[in-house]
């Protein structure tokens, strides 16, 4: 064990030579240190310096504290805080970031909704949205273009009809979509068979002003 000498005691003095309300210095064999201080003038003077500095600190603080008109200040402060809180309450309610945004209440509402979600939920939601988007994108691509190079929407001949704009297709299943004139075989009923995918996924009915000008059935 290290001997309790000056070299051992000096570094401990800033912690020991001060009030120790919860005995934090107790672990540093305070009894032996105190015994050394009784005998060693140098360490005692050093400890005294820390004690005096600590006392000076507390005295100076107390003196300046006394110059602050505390009661009036606290009363006024309480009113000021509650007035500020009432403002927030009006904006957003407790527990919410008040979003003062030029974008209006929609953004504010979103910020609030987002704030109410723990971040893990936000991450999970984001991941789920990305997964759904990926599946949707793949399905849409599958629906449009499945069947390889021959049936690829990019490789078909242009539609033999004149159109002033894109054709609106209303498929039996799946989302509505627009056909740019890239040449789907269209029957006399105005149905387009894209030749992609199983079941009804590939069938859509055209509803366009060019119904009258449909090319003759093949």
């Amino acid at each position: 064990m290290q001997p309790v000498d000056c070299a051992y005691v000096r570094p401990l003095l800033p912690m020991l030579a001060a009030e120790d309300p919860d005995g934090e210095a107790a672990g540093t064999c305070a009894a032996q240190v105190r015994a050394h201080l009784r005998e060693c003038v140098g360490c005692r003077a050093e400890a005294g310096g820390f004690l005096r500095a600590g006392r000076a600190l507390r005295d100076a603080v107390a003196a300046r504290d006394a110059a602050v008109p505390d009661d009036a200040l606290q009363q006024d402060l309480h009113a000021a805080i509650m007035a500020r809180v009432a403002e927030i309450e009006w904006q957003d309610g407790p527990g919410h970031e008040a979003v003062t945004s030029a974008y209006g209440p929609g953004v504010l509402g979103f910020a609030r909704w987002r704030r109410e979600l723990p971040w893990r939920h936000v991450v999970a939601l984001g991941a789920a949205a990305m997964l759904l988007a990926a599946i949707g994108f793949w399905a849409f691509g599958f629906w449009l273009g499945h069947g390889g190079e021959r049936d690829s929407i990019w490789s078909r001949q242009p539609l033999q009809a004149t159109s002033t704009g894109p054709l609106r297709a209303v498929p039996y299943a799946g989302p509505r979509f627009e056909l740019l004139p890239v040449g789907l075989p269209i029957d006399d009923q105005g149905s387009a068979e894209s030749g992609v995918g199983p079941g009804m996924m590939g069938r859509g009915r055209l509803r366009t002003p060019i119904d009258e000008q449909l090319p003759p059935p093949r």
């Binding site: 805080i81 927030i88 407790p94 527990g95 970031e97 704030r115």
Partner: peptide, 8 residues
């Protein structure tokens, strides 16, 4: 003010 906003 910050306390109020982050109470939740």
């Amino acid at each position: 003010v910050r306390l109020y906003r982050s109470l939740d």
